[in-house]
Computed example of a mutant assay.
Amino acid sequence: MSSISMRKTTLAAAGLAVAGTLVLTGCKDGNEELTPAAPSAPAAQPSQPGGYATPPAGAPSSPAAEGYDGASGAPAGGGGAVATSGQAFKIGQAATVPFTSGSKTGQLALTVTSIEAGNPADLASLNVADKVKGKTPFYIHYTAKNTGTTDLSFTSVGHMKGLLDGGAESDVLLVVGKFDKCPSESLPSGFTNGKSQASCAIALAPTGAKVTGAEYWGDPYNNLNKPAQKGLTWK
């Protein structure tokens, strides 16, 4: 995966740089800011609103465990049909996607499991109040399951962003280092066929707005040199 710019580049595992670095990106124009986060400080634990979006009725309560494939409605254990550009899924459904990281090429089943409304105070430990003023964090929880034959140990998925209730892209907050409210780590050692890992992406919405959907824009679903390509969405 190549860069941190949500439209123009991709994020590589090697680019995770120094632990404790925070990146705030605006998805529309690709601008970014780097700000040091508090070193290894535990996230604040104030009360917060409950989850905003939940799996739809009839969807498996644990999509990754049950292998539910949103593209075909069939078990995803064998990979299922690969999702097409711009394909839409319901929260709780899995999308089978090709996956490339460095020299590794494989296949994943990605499932957005919930979108949880957070509290601005959650971000206090990151010392970025001036960067997130007037914004509310939303936590996009998703799972990645290896449905291919390649060992994807230590690769990073990422490329997940939020969609506001009107359809516009939200800002994205990337934290390199530990953030308990929304943990996001590279895939572990031994991440072979059938292995799953939960992850999280932080979306920022203007106060009063809500993040009601998510979009995966990893290759080949980004428009880098492929203007006709569109991301996969969950709502």
Rank of each mutant, 00 (worst) to 15 (best):
Q197H: 07
I140P: 02
D122V: 02
V172W: 00
L164Y: 01
Q107E: 15
N119W: 05
I91F: 04
P188D: 11
T212S: 08
L110A: 09
T149M: 10
Y142M: 12
D171S: 08
T105E: 13
A109N: 14
L108F: 09
G162L: 03
Q87F: 12
G162Q: 02
T192F: 04
L110Q: 11
L108G: 06
A203T: 11
G190A: 03
F89H: 14
A209P: 05
I202F: 02
N127D: 13
A95F: 07
I140A: 02
N146V: 11
D165P: 01
S114H: 02
H159K: 04
S101V: 09
D180P: 00
G177A: 01
A203D: 06
P120F: 04
T155C: 13
G166T: 10
S184D: 13
T207P: 03
K210F: 12
V157Q: 01
V172Q: 02
G102A: 14
F99R: 11
S103N: 15
G167P: 05
T143H: 03
P183C: 00
T212P: 04
D122Q: 10
K195S: 10
L110E: 09
F138T: 04
K104Y: 11
P183A: 00
S153L: 08
K161I: 07
H141P: 03
S153N: 05
G158M: 01
G134A: 11
F179M: 01
A124C: 06
D151M: 12
K178T: 13
L187Q: 06
T143F: 01
S196K: 12
F89P: 14
L108D: 10
A88D: 15
V132E: 12
S153G: 15
A121H: 07
S153F: 07
G134F: 10
S103W: 08
N146M: 11
M160P: 00
A95T: 10
A121R: 14
S114I: 00
M160A: 00
F138C: 04
P188E: 14
L174Q: 06
L152F: 10
P188C: 09
K195C: 09
F138K: 09
K161S: 13
A95M: 12
G158K: 03
G134E: 11
Q107C: 06
F138G: 06
I115F: 02
K195F: 05
F191I: 08
G177Y: 02
D122I: 01
P183K: 00
V157G: 03
I140N: 02
G162H: 05
P137F: 01
T96Q: 14
S103P: 05
T147M: 10
K104I: 07
S156D: 08
T113F: 00
K210L: 12
S101P: 07
F99D: 05
D171L: 03
S114P: 02
S125D: 05
K131F: 06
K135W: 12
A88E: 14
G190W: 05
A214E: 08
F179K: 00
T155W: 01
T113W: 00
A209T: 14
S184H: 10
T207W: 05
D180R: 00
L163I: 15
K210M: 12
Q87C: 07
K195V: 15
G213T: 10
P98Y: 11
F89S: 13
P98K: 13
T207R: 09
S196R: 09
A203F: 14
K181D: 02
T207N: 15
Q93H: 15
T212A: 06
T136D: 15
